[in-house]
Design a protein around this nucleic acid. Structure first.
Length: 481
RNA sequence: CGGGACGUAGUUCAGUUGGUAGAAUGCGCGCUUUGGGAGCGUGAGGUCGAGAGUUCGAAUCUCUCCGUCCCGACCA
């Protein structure tokens, strides 16, 4: 049974309107007073906290430590790596006045921390014994975006940025891939969003990187979202920043570095992929509230207190079983409205506990994703919920995977390429000559840019989709968010 | 930074040929309610984005500015 949301825009009508609407109505975030800024509200921040908890466990297990570096970066530092400053200068916020005086050396509000961190790494690394350096920081960065969008593109966003330094290139590359694997796990196993994992083309890679690895996800409108990136920086920064060490052989060498980041943008993807006309659907592993318990009261007070006791005891059992739950014992608004509130917020499972359940010693359990309603014996509650949460997690992933598969096309002619890009979009696997001029033309003509070359790609003999010249690989193309 | 739309109550919006501010919803209080957006009563809430001009009189007409959203170029 489908219940109309009088106040919520429909996902099926217009994805972009629905997206903004649901974020505001679910109280995930709100617009800040400065254009392009966003306030992350407690419910949205709870999701980000989930991300930090999950990643911190992974990072720390690999020996990565958290630290904090300053927000302000001297412009002179940023200039040291040529490609880096060129890539970022159009979107920098620069402080020119401090303490009422014009600054001699303007300060950049960090757009990313390579330069400020590496200026410190140069002091800290002297010997091979100082390596590897494995540091992550959770912080905010600012990029002066011309056009912004809640979560997906804001002027200031939250992220983690990991920065490592190693003795050898091989070790650095391995670490880059390790970070990439963390990102894949976060998307696939927690966000329930299947991704393609690969490397970026020369034009799409990070300013200053040797190679950029990425995870790419598909949104319901057929556009691709770059989920996270991990960079092999080689010695591009260690040379200008003079990060040197003496090797075991007594030789002076520059370190090999990596950097990798995952931002609040990912949450935008989470909302887009799983929601429906009723609102958000959060995968159980990410949901700050996995089960909402709703006592349905009757007017006789004596019954209510026993009912409430019955329901509260259930919450305690859930909590002991490691299930995140919320008890909604409010008298107002009406029960129907409160059902809808939690649906908009995407809580995966709802318990309905009324006189019927109390009398029969049962609980009515409702799935957010399918709307399916079941009655369960009180004794079977915990095991049923645990199974249900797993089912929902899997079912959300399977659904997204199915969508991804159906919208990934092998394309062999430019006419077909254009046709798909002007209709359903999605990921297009096509041969490309790897010439950046050709890439630019394709983007201009179809809006599709190269998203990645999947890691498991096999060399083949083909002809570039646009120019017909020799091409070795099928690249993934898509319109990017 | 180009193109479009729009600024009136917390929100969504109406406001006729220019005549001095409205609705719905939300919010407060009281009572009745509770298995899918409850009912009745009552109350609070506005520099009509800002400034200037035209006029006896401007939310309404003119100009300038500011801001927001959407679509492009740019980007995590």
């Amino acid at each position: 049974m489908v219940f109309e949301k009088k106040e919520l825009k429909k996902k099926s009508d217009n994805l972009s309107d629905w997206y903004t609407d649901v974020i505001l109505k679910a109280k995930l975030a709100d617009y800040g007073p400065v254009k392009g800024t966003m306030v992350v509200r407690p419910y949205g921040y709870a999701l980000w906290e989930m991300v930090t908890e999950i990643f911190n466990k992974m990072f720390k297990a690999a020996g990565v430590e958290n630290a904090y570096f300053p927000l302000f970066i001297p412009y002179s530092l940023l200039e040291k790596e040529k490609e880096h400053v060129k890539g970022f200068s159009p979107e920098l916020a620069i402080v020119t006045i401090g303490g009422g005086e014009k600054l001699k050396d303007p300060l950049v509000v960090r757009p990313t921390s390579e330069t400020i961190m590496y200026s410190m790494y140069a002091k800290w690394v002297q010997s091979w014994r100082d390596l590897p350096v494995l540091i992550n920081q959770w912080n905010n960065v600012v990029r002066w975006e011309k056009r912004t969008y809640l979560f997906l593109r804001t002027m200031e966003f939250l992220w983690q940025e990991g920065h490592t330094a190693h003795e050898t290139h091989k070790e650095a590359i391995e670490f880059t891939k390790k970070a990439l694997e963390w990102y894949r796990i976060m998307y696939e196993e927690y966000y329930a969003i299947p991704v393609y994992v690969g490397t970026k083309s020369e034009t799409e890679k990070f300013a200053g990187a040797e190679t950029t690895f990425c995870v790419e996800a598909l949104m319901p409108d057929g556009k691709a979202l770059q989920g996270a990136t991990s960079h092999d920086l080689a010695q591009h920064f260690s040379k200008p920043f003079d990060i040197k060490f003496q090797s075991k052989e007594g030789k002076t060498e520059y370190v090999w570095q990596t950097s990798w980041g995952f931002s609040t943008r990912s949450l935008g993807g989470l909302f887009l992929v799983h929601g429906d006309d009723q609102g958000l659907i959060l995968p159980p592993k990410m949901a700050p509230i996995q089960v909402v318990i709703m006592p349905i009261k009757k007017s006789a007070d004596s019954e209510n207190s026993e009912l409430e006791f019955y329901a509260r005891e259930m919450q305690e059992a859930l909590s002991n079983g490691g299930v995140r739950s919320k008890f909604d014992g409010r008298d107002e608004p009406s029960i129907g409205r409160r059902f809808n509130e939690w649906e908009v917020k995407g809580v995966p499972v709802r318990f309905e506990v009324g006189l019927r359940e109390y009398t029969d010693r049962t609980v009515t359990i409702v799935r957010r994703d399918t709307g399916e309603k079941i009655s369960v014996e009180r004794g079977e509650m915990l095991i049923t919920v645990e199974r249900l949460l797993k089912d929902i997690q899997k079912s959300l992933f399977d659904k997204a995977k199915d969508f991804l598969t159906k919208n990934t096309h092998d394309v062999n002619s430019y006419a077909q390429f254009k046709e798909i890009m002007s209709s359903s979009r999605g990921f297009l696997r096509a041969f490309w000559c790897e010439n950046s001029a050709c890439e630019a033309e394709i983007k201009k003509e179809t809006k599709a840019s190269t998203r990645c070359l999947p890691l498991d790609s096999k060399e083949e003999k083909g002809a570039c989709i646009r120019c017909g010249k020799e091409a070795k690989y099928r690249w993934f193309f898509a319109q990017s968010y």
